[in-house]
């Protein structure tokens, strides 16, 4: 049975385009233009993944409210924020509410699709026994590339998909400098340099929260970042 994706977006053209693309990739899609109708539908049946726009019609923060409601109903449901806003503040608020990823609308459809399939993979594998594992071990860091799980000294670090891909990109070849374009390519996003910087900042913060002495990510000014070997 096809996975069911809920798309909550107030702009009709974007909604239709995204819905078409998602359908073409073999998913079922339910589209909603406003928060009340989406919440009403979710009370009857939860989707398997939700893509939510933050500003919904008359509610500038309707997407945040919806995310909170969804999280209350299910702690595992993958949620992607898709928004025209690009401020750090919005990203942080969205991620704090438990979204799995935060994308600005300039993301291309193939990049969006890559995220959707990755999130589904993570959700599926979370319930399966750890048989065919694909693990990357770098000292205290362990990356489960199938479940998109990162642990540091056995403690799980709650990374978004984008962040996980960035960490993976750096940790794959420790000591090698990854420039911003490479990081963007591996994380399947196209953003400006400042956004990469704030992503790295958030990743550092998450690791530091688990281990105050963390300094695994080196900034190589003018070039990029590298994982400390």
């Amino acid at each position: 049975m096809a996975k069911r994706i809920a798309l909550i977006e107030d702009d009709a053209a974007i909604r239709a385009n995204y819905a078409d693309a998602i359908k073409k990739h073999g998913y079922d899609v339910a589209t909603y233009a406003a928060r009340p109708e989406a919440s009403a539908a979710f009370k009857l049946r939860l989707p398997e993944l939700a893509i939510i726009d933050i500003g919904l019609g008359q509610e500038p923060d309707g997407g945040f409210t919806l995310c909170r409601e969804l999280r209350a109903q299910s702690s595992t449901l993958p949620i992607i924020f898709l928004t025209a806003r690009d401020s750090d503040f919005d990203a942080v608020s969205g991620l704090r509410l438990g979204a799995d990823d935060y994308l600005t609308k300039d993301v291309s459809l193939p990049h969006l699709m890559a995220r959707i399939s990755a999130l589904f993979r993570r959700a599926d594998l979370a319930n399966e026994p750890k048989s065919q594992e694909e693990i990357l071990d770098r000292g205290p860091l362990r990356l489960d590339l199938k479940r998109f799980l990162a642990t540091w000294n056995e403690r799980e670090i709650d990374l978004t998909l984008t962040e996980f891909w960035m960490v993976h990109s750096m940790a794959k070849f420790p000591g090698h400098v990854k420039n911003r374009d490479q990081l963007m390519g591996e994380a399947k996003i196209v953003v400006d340099d400042g956004t990469i910087t704030s992503h790295i900042k958030r990743i550092r913060k998450k690791f530091v929260a688990a281990d105050a002495g963390f300094d695994g990510i080196d900034t190589v000014y003018g070039m990029g970042y590298r994982w400390r070997a």
Binding site: I14, D20, A84, K105
Partner: peptide, 21 residues
């Protein structure tokens, strides 16, 4: 402007992406 432009740009981009498929 950033915010308001993003929406139509997204419309064009997603349309082009769809078209490319």
């Amino acid at each position: 402007i950033t915010h308001e432009f993003r929406t139509p740009v997204t419309v064009v981009r997603s349309s082009l992406d769809n078209l490319a498929m």
